[in-house]
Structure formats: C-alpha cells, structure tokens
Simulated assay, not measured.
Amino acid sequence: MAIPTSRVKEKAEIKINEEKCTGCGLCVSVCKDFGLELENKKVKSSPNPLFGCIGCGHCMAICPSNAIEIHGRELSPNDLFDLPGQKDAATYEQLLTLLKRRRSIREFKDLPVEHELIEKILDAAKTAPMGLPPSDVNVLILDNQEKVRAFAKDFCDYLDGMKWLVSTWFLALMRPFWGKANDELFRGFVKPLFHTYTNNMRKGVNLVNYDAPLAMYFYGSPYCDPADPVVAATYAMFAAESLGLGTCMLGGVHPLIQSGKRAKKFRESQGIKFPSKEGLFVIFGYPQVTYHKGIQRTFASVVTKK
C-alpha cells in the first residue's frame, strides 16, 4: 500500500533498463524501501518492498548508467539535474559567515522585493529535505505592502472575535487540562501578544507583520511531516539573506488560526488550504537598519551520551 499525501495516493513506478544496468548495486544500497534487489548481476524490482516506491528518486539519482527511471508521485526523469561540483560549494566558513550575519529585521525600506528575487527564494526553499515526497508544504505569498497589511488587519479583526481565548475565566478553566507550562505561556506571552496586535492595529500600527514588502507563510497538510514547513521556511530565510534581504520569522500567527470554525473561515478567506501542525510566516525586505554586532546564542543543553 502506498503512503498517501495530499497530492498523491499511489506508489511510483520503477522502470529498469536491463541493457544499461551494470549491476553495480548502488541503487539497491540507497533504497530504504527495499524495493530493489540484484539478481544475476542485474537490478530488478523487489517483490516485497516496505511501502512501495515513495518517489524519493535516490536510485535514479545515483545510477551511473542512467538505467533507472521513476515515474509518479510528481517525479519523472525530467526532474533530474547535474549536481554542482564540490569546488562550487560554499565552504564552512562562508556558510557560518552567512548564518552569523543574519539578524531578525522588522524595519524595512519602502522598496518592493523584485519578482526575480521571490522566485530565487522559492527555488532555494524547494531544495529543503522533507519527511516524505512529494512535498506537502504549501506557501502563501503576500508580495507587496498592501497585501501584507490587509492580512494583518484581517487577522486582528479575527482576534477581536476570539478575546475569550485569553480571558481570565478561560485561562483558569484550562490550566488543569493543559498544565503549568502552557498556562505560563498563555498568560505571559499569548495574552499580551493578543492585545498588542489588536490595540496597535486600531491605532494604525501593524505589529503583526510590520508592513513588510513581502511575506511568505509556509504550512503543511494533514499528511505533512510537522517539520517540513519549518525547514522550508528556514531555507527561504537564508536564501533571502544571501540575496541582500532582511528577514524575520513570525511565530505569533500560525498557532492562532488552526482550530475551530472561525479559524477555518479565516484560513479560507486568505486562501490557506489546510490547517497545519506546524507553520511559519517569514517577512522579507531591504533592511532600513544595519547591525554591527552579533549575539552569541546557546542551546538549553548539549549532552553526549556515554
């Protein structure tokens, strides 16, 4: 039985050209579905795969003689490309420099982000690893300040109808059910954020997405690995940094538009196709400010198991 996603329900088809096959076995070694095996120094489909071909493309990508084609699950031989050589890859020092230079930017110049740069950001984000192909990550793009502000205003109007969620009586009612940590989070973060968004919007100040020239919302489907939208959003953020744009991840919107009828109505009005276990907004634009110092970050813990 094939693993279903929102895009496909069937397994992919593996086509093997026996004349081209050299029997090297590389495809067998990388197929973790156990869908291939060697017989008489030729590769063939296994009668007992784990799930059926999920369309990862590993076997097709590693075959030195182009003897394997995968068709289905949004994949075909037309999707193959030659990998860049190691000499063209960024060094560790170059990568670390990019990561260190990035800071969260919420102040942007009044300049649009060119369509060409948006496409480059998306091209980079598409390379993000995923839990299961084909990707179930969806992207909502707000490509100018007017669209970004309109979303923020609609979101604040939506929150105005959800005030009970951070009311004293509701938080007291829920504490025994969702525990101390969630109670502290709602009282110390969600409740003040809720009021900050709505009160400032009434004054004409947008603290939801800061009137950025560009915003992208990465979210999944009910079938999606929860990490996938977050990883894709991270790739997009670093791609934008390499293109000279400032970026900031916004975590305050996604959790509040997932549950209930009002949330569903809001998602539908914004063209958001699914509720999603995880999701992230990223805002982009040409920075209006310049930072000259970085800040050293730490993990909560790092333990090497003995």
Rank of each mutant, 00 (worst) to 15 (best):
I70Y: 11
I70W: 14
H71F: 10
H71R: 13
G72D: 05
R73K: 12
R73E: 06
E74C: 12
E74I: 04
E74F: 10
L75V: 14
S76A: 10
D79E: 10
L80W: 09
L80C: 13
L80F: 14
F81Y: 15
F81E: 15
F81S: 12
D82T: 13
D82Y: 07
D82V: 14
L83M: 15
P84T: 06
G85Y: 03
Q86R: 14
Q86G: 09
Q86T: 11
D88K: 04
D88S: 15
D88Y: 05
A89H: 12
A89S: 14
A90I: 06
Y92A: 04
Q94P: 03
Q94K: 01
L95C: 05
L95H: 01
L95R: 00
L95F: 01
T97G: 12
L99C: 03
K100V: 02
R101F: 04
R101S: 08
R101V: 06
R102Y: 01
R103A: 07
R103Q: 04
R106E: 08
R106V: 04
E107M: 03
E107I: 04
E107F: 13
F108L: 05
F108W: 07
K109E: 13
K109Y: 09
D110C: 02
L111M: 06
L111Q: 15
P112E: 00
V113M: 02
V113W: 06
V113S: 05
H115K: 15
H115G: 09
E116K: 13
L117Q: 10
E119W: 13
I121P: 11
I121Q: 12
L122V: 15
L122T: 03
D123C: 08
D123N: 15
K126T: 07
K126S: 12
K126N: 11
T127M: 06
A128D: 05
A128C: 08
P129N: 09
P129C: 14
M130G: 09
G131C: 03
P133W: 02
P134R: 02
P134Y: 00
P134I: 00
S135M: 13
S135E: 05
S135A: 08
D136C: 14
D136W: 01
D136G: 12
D136I: 03
V137T: 08
V139T: 09
L140N: 11
L140K: 15
I141Y: 11
L142K: 08
D143H: 12
N144Y: 05
Q145P: 03
Q145V: 12
E146I: 05
E146G: 03
E146F: 03
K147D: 06
K147A: 15
K147E: 14
K147G: 12
V148C: 08
F151E: 14
A152N: 11
K153Y: 13
D154M: 12
D154C: 06
F155A: 09
C156E: 02
C156M: 07
D157F: 08
Y158M: 11
L159D: 02
D160L: 04
G161D: 07
G161Y: 04
G161E: 11
G161N: 13
G161H: 07
M162S: 08
K163V: 09
K163T: 13
K163P: 00
K163A: 10
K163G: 12
W164T: 07
V166M: 07
